[in-house]
Amino acid sequence: MLIAEELLLVGTSPEGRNLLGSSRTLVLGGALLTELALRERLDVDGRKRLRVLDGGTIGEPLLDEALVRFAEREGKKPKDALDRVGKKLQQPLLDSLVRRELVRPEPVKALGLTLTTRWPVLMSGPRDAVVGDLATVVTGAREPDSRTGALISLLHAVDALPKVLTTEMRPGMTNGEVKRRGKEISKGRWAPEAVATAVAELNTAMMAAVMAGGAASSS
C-alpha cells in the first residue's frame, strides 16, 4: 500500500470513524508529497518551494495523479498545495481501500438524507499490522524506517497519534508521552533532507489551518 493508503486505513477506527479530524485532506496531501519525495520524484528546494525532479510515470495511478497535481503547483510552497491535492485524491484513496476489501462505505442517514459516510474496517489484520509496526517504534522497541517514520510524523502533525495507538498498544505511556515521542520521531534522521523539509512544511500548514479555524470561530 501507499503511505497515504496506510495513513487513511490507520486513521479510520475499526467502526469507521475518522481519526484524522478536519485536516484529513491536508495530511493525505502530505502523505502523497512525502512518498513522492522518498521516491525522489519531488523535492522541496532551499527556498522551501516545490520542485519536480522526475515527472515520468511511476506506474501507481494514485501517485502519478498526485505528481501531476503537485507539478501544476511547482514553485509554490507545499502548504499552498497540500489541501488541494488531498481533496482531489481523498475519494480515490478511499475507493482503493474499498477495492482491496479493507473498508466499506456506510452512509449515515437522518430523515432520508445522507449526512455523512463512515468507512468501517472489513479486515482488521492489515490495519492491525500497520498499527503494530507504529507501536513498536513509538514505544522504543525499534528505530523508525522511512515508512513508519513518515506515518508517525504525519499522524503527529494532526494530533492523531494517541487516537491510533490506543492505550493497550503502548502500556504505561500517557497521551502526552506519545505526543512527545511523535514530535521526536518527526525530527529524526529516518528520511532524506527533502522529506524532512516536506514534513516540516506539513506541520507549518497544519498550524496555519488551526489558526485560521480559530480566527473564523471567533469572528
Rank of each mutant, 00 (worst) to 15 (best):
I3D: 00
L8R: 09
S13V: 04
P14M: 11
P14D: 13
L19E: 04
S22Q: 08
S22G: 06
R24L: 04
R24Q: 07
R24W: 03
R24N: 01
T25Y: 05
V27N: 00
G29L: 03
G30W: 00
G30C: 05
L32H: 08
L36N: 00
L36G: 00
E40K: 14
L42N: 08
D43M: 12
G46C: 11
R47G: 12
R47K: 13
K48P: 03
L50S: 12
L50V: 15
D54Y: 07
G55D: 13
G55T: 15
T57W: 06
G59V: 11
G59D: 09
E60H: 11
E60V: 10
L67Y: 01
L67I: 07
V68C: 09
A71Q: 04
E72T: 08
E72G: 06
K76Y: 15
K77A: 10
K79E: 14
D80T: 14
D83H: 05
D83S: 08
V85F: 02
K88S: 15
L89H: 01
L89Y: 01
Q90E: 11
Q90N: 09
L93R: 01
D95Y: 09
E101R: 13
L102Y: 02
K109I: 11
A110W: 06
L115P: 00
L115C: 08
T117A: 02
M123A: 15
P126S: 07
A129V: 13
V130T: 05
D133T: 07
L134D: 03
A135Q: 00
T136N: 14
T136C: 12
G140R: 13
A141R: 14
R142G: 07
R142Q: 13
R142C: 08
E143H: 15
E143P: 12
D145N: 15
L151S: 01
I152E: 00
S153T: 07
L165F: 10
T166W: 12
E168W: 13
R170A: 13
G172K: 10
G172R: 13
G172Q: 09
G172L: 08
G172T: 09
G176K: 15
G176S: 14
E177A: 09
V178P: 01
V178A: 03
R180G: 11
G182L: 06
G182R: 05
K183P: 02
I185T: 00
I185F: 00
I185C: 00
S186L: 05
S186V: 06
A191M: 02
A191I: 04
E193Q: 11
E193K: 15
A196L: 13
A200H: 10
A205L: 06
A208T: 07
A209H: 03
A212N: 01
G214C: 05
A216G: 02
S217H: 14
S218F: 12
S218D: 10
